[in-house]
């Protein structure tokens, strides 16, 4: 008598990624029904603050498009992560959101619109400088000015023409507290910002960005030059800041995206492949390209 079942051989053949193109994507991927999901449900969609509609962007006056057909809603009061391999266009899109790319002569939005609170940011009556007050930015490499801690945090206010020392002091204190730096620097506000540690310098840059009370903060790999402790502080700060600001973060660190963001958008070769709740993108993405990227099967 032998009842031992014979197990079938498993096929582990590789599939050629390029041979299975995916169809065009809707902007929003529906969230799985909670009743049918195990740990993959996401937060309810919040009110949209930024609307990107069929955006195309070129660095060479439209000869080649770096971004194509980007349609995306970014909700208010949440952290949204942009992920994707190098060259996929995520930083380019981030810089489109406050028209930083305008500083490049040959850069051009080839089609589509970006609306912030319903207003087209490329409309003739929009001043890019005013836009950048509303949409602050923190860069990959912390870049404080060679000035005092106080002057760094007050810089944006001074540019805006604020002269009152009292107003400046209050704004600096508020910004440094919001960026979780106040307790560490309150006794040496007149010291050089360059004497701070890397993590502190990056938090000072965040303080500089939020001192002018923007609505949106863009962060381009803000922790890539920091150690794990400083990274954790910045991530904690991002979590605190989302109460008052809408944050868009570009990151290559996917664990960081899962820790800090409610929504994640995956880009590849200048196109938005998939966007949805972070738990869905990392738990059960709808597109195979997304799954291959987040699980390390890419390239």
């Amino acid at each position: 008598m032998s009842f031992v079942p014979q197990l079938n051989e498993r096929s582990m053949n590789e599939i050629n990624f390029d041979a299975t193109p995916e169809p065009a994507l809707p902007a929003e991927i529906p969230v799985m029904s909670p009743a049918k999901s195990r740990g993959t449900e996401g937060k309810e969609a919040a009110k949209s603050l930024i609307e990107i509609e069929d955006l195309g962007f070129s660095y060479d006056l439209g000869q080649t498009e770096t971004l194509r057909n980007i349609t995306l809603s970014i909700p208010k009061g949440q952290v949204t992560s942009f992920i994707g391999p190098s060259g996929c266009g995520k930083s380019t899109l981030l810089r489109c959101l406050n028209r930083m790319n305008d500083l490049i002569d040959t850069a051009k939005v080839t089609r589509g619109k970006i609306k912030i609170m319903g207003q087209d940011i490329h409309a003739a009556d929009v001043d890019p400088i005013e836009l950048r007050k509303r949409v602050g930015m923190v860069f990959q490499k912390y870049n404080p000015f060679p000035k005092s801690i106080f002057e760094n945090a007050a810089y944006g206010m001074r540019i805006q023409g604020v002269k009152s020392q009292k107003v400046l002091a209050e704004a600096v204190e508020r910004a440094l507290k919001q960026s979780a730096l106040w307790d560490e620097v309150k006794d040496r506000l007149n010291s050089s910002a360059l004497g701070l540690s890397g993590g502190q310098q990056q938090r000072l840059c965040i303080a500089r960005a939020i001192a002018v009370q923007p609505e949106i903060i863009l962060m381009d790999e803000p922790c890539s030059a920091l150690d794990p402790i400083a990274t954790a502080r910045i991530e904690e700060l991002i979590t605190d800041l989302k109460e008052n600001y809408t944050i868009v973060i570009v990151t290559h660190n996917m664990q960081q995206a899962t820790r800090v963001s409610a929504r994640t958008a995956f880009f590849y070769l200048g196109e938005l492949i998939e966007v949805g709740p972070t738990t869905k993108i990392f738990g059960n993405p709808s597109k195979k390209q997304t799954e291959d990227y987040v699980s390390g099967r890419f390239g």
């Binding site: 990624f17 699980s295 099967r297 890419f298």
Partner: peptide, 9 residues
């Protein structure tokens, strides 16, 4: 089962 191999063998 995703049959693509990981970059990390």
């Amino acid at each position: 089962m995703n049959q693509n191999r990981h970059t990390l063998r």
